[in-house]
C-alpha cells in the first residue's frame, strides 16, 4: 500500500517539477535580462535610453529611440494592412465558404503562419523587395510624393527596396492568419439563433454581420489585433534583412531603418561589452512590451 502512495508522490513531484521548470525559466529570462542590461541601465538610464537616437560605436553611446520607432511603425503598418484582409477571410470562412471547402481554405491560410520566418526573410530579400522597388515605390512616390509636409516620407531616397514598408508587408503576411483565426473564433461564438433573428427581420447577410456578428466578436478581434502587434514587434528573422538595418534618421518610409529585433539579430554576435549590454537592454524592453501587450490582450479576450 505504501509503495502506491510513494509512487503517487513521486509522480506528483515530477509534474510539479515540470510546472516549476516553466516558472523558473520565465523568471530566469527576466532576471538574466535585467542583470545583463545593468551596465547599460546604469550608463544610459531609462528615460534617456528610450529617447536617445544615438547608436554610436565609437562613442559607445546607445539609445533605443530608433529601434523602438522602427519596430512600432513596422508593427502598426503590418497590423493596419493585415486586419482588413484578415477580417475578410474570417467573414468568408464563417459566413460564405461552402462547408466542403472550409477545412482546406482555413488550413491554407493557417499555413501562412507556419512557414518559418527565416524563409519569409529570404523571400522578402530576393522576391518582394525587388518587386516593390520596381513597381510599388515609384507609384506611391508619384501619387503621394508631392503632398506638402508628408510627401517626403513616400519618396524613394535610397535604392534597394529594403525598408520599413517592405518589412511591414512581410510582417503583415505573417500575422494575417493569426488575426483571421482569432476573429473566426470570435465570430463562431455568436449564437446561431441571434443571427437567425436578424435574418428574420429581413436583414441582408452583411447587415447581419454588422449588426449582430461584429458587436459580439469585437472584443475578440481587438484582442487578436493586439496579440498580433506583439508578434510583429518580436518577429526577427523576416525583418532582419528586409529592414536594411541602417541607424539613421527616418527620412522616408522607403528608406532602410532599424527595429529592435533587427539590431539584436545583426549586431549581437559582434558586439563590444557596452553595446552588448545595450542589446540586452533592448531585449529587456521587448520582454516588457510583450508582457504589457499580453495582459492588455488578455483583458480583452478574457482567457485564463
Amino acid at each position: 500500500m505504501n509503495t502506491k502512495k510513494t509512487a503517487n508522490l513521486i509522480f506528483f513531484l515530477m509534474t510539479g517539477f515540470g510546472a516549476a521548470s516553466l516558472v523558473f525559466m520565465t523568471a530566469g529570462i527576466l532576471v538574466t535580462l535585467v542583470v545583463e542590461s545593468w551596465p547599460g541601465i546604469e550608463r544610459f538610464g531609462v528615460i534617456k535610453f528610450l529617447l536617445s537616437r544615438d547608436w554610436n560605436y565609437a562613442k559607445e553611446s546607445f539609445g533605443a529611440a530608433r529601434p523602438l520607432t522602427g519596430a512600432i511603425l513596422a508593427a502598426v503598418m503590418a497590423v493596419a494592412m493585415a486586419t482588413p484582409v484578415a477580417l475578410g477571410v474570417a467573414i468568408f470562412l464563417t459566413e460564405l465558404c461552402p462547408a466542403k471547402l472550409k477545412g482546406s481554405v482555413a488550413l491554407a491560410i493557417e499555413l501562412l503562419a507556419a512557414i518559418p520566418s527565416v524563409i519569409y526573410g529570404l523571400w522578402g530579400l530576393f522576391v518582394l523587395a525587388p518587386f516593390l522597388e520596381k513597381y510599388f515605390q515609384p507609384l506611391v512616390g508619384k501619387v503621394l510624393g508631392d503632398v506638402p509636409w508628408i510627401g517626403g516620407y513616400f519618396q524613394t531616397k535610397m535604392a534597394g527596396g529594403l525598408n520599413l514598408v517592405t518589412a511591414s508587408m512581410i510582417l503583415g503576411v505573417m500575422i494575417l492568419p493569426f488575426i483571421a483565426s482569432l476573429a473566426r473564433e470570435g465570430f463562431a461564438q455568436v449564437p446561431e439563433a441571434l443571427k437567425e433573428s436578424a435574418y428574420g427581420l429581413g436583414a441582408t447577410r452583411w447587415e447581419t454581420i454588422r449588426a449582430v456578428v461584429w458587436p459580439s466578436a469585437q472584443k475578440a478581434v481587438m484582442g487578436g489585433i493586439i496579440m498580433a502587434t506583439g508578434r510583429a514587434l518580436g518577429e526577427t528573422m523576416a525583418v532582419a534583412y528586409v529592414i536594411g538595418n541602417r541607424h539613421g534618421a527616418l527620412e522616408s518610409l522607403f528608406s532602410p531603418y532599424v527595429t529592435v529585433t533587427s539590431v539584436i539579430a545583426n549586431e549581437f554576435n559582434e558586439a563590444g561589452p557596452i553595446q552588448m549590454s545595450a542589446l540586452f537592454y533592448l531585449t529587456l524592453a521587448l520582454f516588457l512590451a510583450n508582457l504589457l501587450i499580453l495582459s492588455l490582450a488578455k483583458r480583452l479576450l478574457r482567457r485564463t
Binding site: 510546472a19 516553466l22 516558472v23 525559466m25 520565465t26 530566469g28 529570462i29 538574466t32 535580462l33 545583463e36 496579440m227 506583439g230 508578434r231 514587434l233 518580436g234 518577429e235 526577427t236 529585433t261 539584436i264 539579430a265 549581437f268 542589446l279 540586452f280 531585449t283 521587448l286 520582454f287 510583450n290 508582457l291 501587450i293 499580453l294 488578455k298 485564463t304
Partner: peptide, 24 residues
C-alpha cells in the same frame, strides 16, 4: 498563476530566448 506564466512564455519572441540562453 503558472498558466499565466505559461502564456507569457509562449508569447515571448524567440530571439529573447536566444539572447537568454546565450547568457546562460
Amino acid at each position: 498563476v503558472i498558466l499565466s506564466i505559461c502564456d507569457l512564455a509562449m508569447s515571448l519572441p524567440s530571439i529573447v530566448v536566444g539572447v537568454f540562453v546565450y547568457s546562460l
